[in-house]
Amino acid sequence: MRLVRSELLKVRTVSTWWVFGIIALVLWALATGVNWISTAVLVNPPEGTPNDDAQFNAVREAANVAANLYTSGQFFGLMIVMLIGVIVVTNEFAHQTATTTFLTTPRRTAVILAKLAAAGIVGLLFWLGTTLLNFLVAPLILGLYDVPSQLGTSALWQAILLNGLAYLIWAVIGVGFGVLIPSQLAGTITTSALYIGGFFAGAIVLNLLADKFGDWWNNLQLIVPPLASGLLVTGTDLPGSPPRWSGAAVLIAYALVAGVIGTLITRKRDIS
């Protein structure tokens, strides 16, 4: 426990957390703006939109429109949290504090576990922050289009809580990657590229495959982590998409693999 407190103190005593906080705030505002526009489109679809697309109609359900707004900022929020996880580890090598850290605690597994816990806590704080902002803004946007606030719908609360799970998991994945790529620059760039690139490349490739070979290919959204986290916050299960719990399971598996490999590497690595 004292190791977790020490790790949180490390985060708190440098400027990283508030710099990332400000970046997250700006990106959240951007995402919320986009979601505002998509809400407008979903509630009042333009003339000529076919009304027999099951997935489109499911997305249009009030609960799911609301879920989208109450979990606004997820895409970039998760990336920020992942990067914090990466930095929590790579800072130790960039500033040569790994020596001090492992002198203080020669049990390296305990150090990595403390980092996972601390990054997870920071991840949840970011979730809490964006969720509070969403609670301020989402009812206003819904109100503009005469959609009730949906706060009584269980699907909405599931989306919000699963969103929290996603923040937690991405922080853990970040720590795992940080251990795998100890260079701070390489670590942050690689993980960001994988995150953003994986999202778009995954979405485009799977769409193409689904068009050509059938809808089954859409299930592979699961194995692309940034798409899997999107599944967690859709509100109700969407037709044509894998169930939400499977997205959570896949993300947890990724986090476990990253965390375990990272720990094993750290236990063996020479610190010099």
């Binding site: 103190l9 490390k10 504090t97 020596t99 850290t101 605690t105």
Partner: peptide, 26 residues
């Protein structure tokens, strides 16, 4: 042990560097 002179985070104050160690070591 004192191993290398530069082993603290550049953006952290001296006192906080020591407090982080205190917290970890109890």
């Amino acid at each position: 042990a004192v191993l290398e002179a530069s082993s603290a985070h550049k953006g952290r104050t001296g006192i906080n560097h020591l407090r982080v160690i205190c917290a970890a070591a109890g």
